[in-house]
């Protein structure tokens, strides 16, 4: 894969820039702050097909978003299955498989392979399940182990009768 800088060279070459003009351009860029360049670039980006507003509030975009905003669903599912469980890998996989078949009786999933490990199977499941469904199955597994239903006095969300499920 080409780096951004290599792509930049290709763009310059494609636009017919001579090495001398590239040198001039770099010299001009070096006189501006990165923030100023980002703001000017964004203006051009908007003209190219972006969004306009009454106030025309341009804002500067930082390259790297904060890391904690995105949930790594696979890691979270693996941690729910492996964390705090005394079960062996084989036992964990069997129980997850049981929950899968019970939750989605009409769907087909790849069979778990204890030798390949839990992480590998979770990755393969994520091709069949949506992120929300994967977390649902992993949380059901975790709850089953934690016996969370012991507090019968509390108000909880009702569970559907499995025999009434249509999908």
């Amino acid at each position: 894969m080409k780096s951004d800088l290599q792509n930049f060279y290709l763009l310059m070459a494609g636009a017919g820039f001579t090495p001398y003009r590239v040198e001039e351009l770099i010299s001009e860029i070096s006189k501006k702050t990165p923030q100023k360049i980002a703001i000017e670039y964004e203006k051009h980006l908007k003209q190219w097909g972006g969004v306009g507003s009454v106030s025309d509030n341009y804002y500067r975009k930082k390259q790297a978003p904060s890391q904690d905003v995105k949930v790594d669903v696979q890691s979270k599912a693996i941690s729910l299955i492996m964390g705090g469980s005394d079960l062996t890998v084989r036992e964990s996989l069997e129980l997850v498989n049981l929950i899968l078949l019970e939750t989605f009786p009409d769907r087909k999933f790849s069979a778990p392979n204890p030798k390949a490990g839990i992480a590998s199977w979770v990755r393969s499941l994520s091709r069949t399940l949506t992120d929300s469904e994967l977390l649902h199955v992993a949380t059901k597994f975790r709850n089953k182990l934690a016996h969370m239903s012991s507090n019968q006095q509390d108000w909880v969300l009702k569970e559907e009768d499995a025999s009434n499920k249509t999908d």
Binding site: S132, R142, L157
Partner: peptide, 19 residues
């Protein structure tokens, strides 16, 4: 406790967004 109850619920868990 809240998140595990919601995500494990058969009706609402599979439609709860991860983020």
């Amino acid at each position: 406790g809240f998140e595990s109850t919601l995500r494990a619920n058969s009706k609402f868990g599979p439609v709860t967004l991860p983020t």
